[in-house]
Amino acid sequence: MSSRVLTEFDLLFPHSLSEAWKILNQHGDRVTTIAGGTDTLVAMKAGYNTPYAMSLSRLPDLDYLTFDPEEGLRVGARATIAQLLDSSVVKECYPALWQAAKVFATPQLKNVATVLGNMLRASPAGDCSCAIYALGGKVLLKSESGQRRVNVDDFWTGYSQTARQPNELAVELQLSPPATNRLSAFKRLTRVNEDLAKLNIAVSLTMDGDTCTDLRLVMGCVGPTLLRLHKTEDQLRGKVLDKHALQAAIATVAEEITPIDDKRSTGAYRRKVAGVYLKRTIEQALECSEQ
């Protein structure tokens, strides 16, 4: 196959969740679910074979983006990255996610690629996934036999692997409700602006004045999955996040990541800049609060 010709498959269009589950149960690992389909089609042009593809495009009501201050942000399975960018709620209450959506891929891909699809792709370089991980939330998985909510912390289980079982559909992401004392930001390093990340970072900080009482630090492109930087979190928790504290954290970051050489960069380089970029991401989150 080539970038000009897709592999062959039967395309199935369920009109309801129960039809979708039937298809998943019937075909198991011989069916690939596609929402936006952008990642999947690229993979198919590179030779990925799947006898069946199941498009969610005719399922009603899954393209929502709804916000409730108590419940948080609910993102439906077919909601696109562009919808995140168009949302003033996301911009104000989930800045890390908005900043990630801003640099994600290209405008054309933003119009089609879905937030949940990006999460399910489970790339350790996923920009929006990185932000979502830092912000925290739950993924709602539904199957014929019921439903369960999986904490984002437990969602990515390995390289390109998630907690979703083959008979389940991921139908919604629910981001934790925002708080006025919670700040977040996202940054990434690339070769040119429009690019897959060499390194990306998302931070979510719970502040009490100048002191950070709790925080979630997530770094991508430095391990088989997106990484929570637990050690660095422990070091900064309860501290005032001034220049000294952040400078001291740089060494800790380097200790807890396992970056490799790949087409975009080297392990050595990533290890050198990871701490600096974390520091800058935290500074960016703190700056935004002053506006």
């Binding site: 040119v192 429009e194 087409k263």
Partner: peptide, 14 residues
């Protein structure tokens, strides 16, 4: 790197 994914050229914003 025979693809635009990994053969990187300066884009409009670079």
């Amino acid at each position: 790197n025979n693809s635009f994914t990994d053969y990187k050229m300066l884009g409009a914003s670079d």
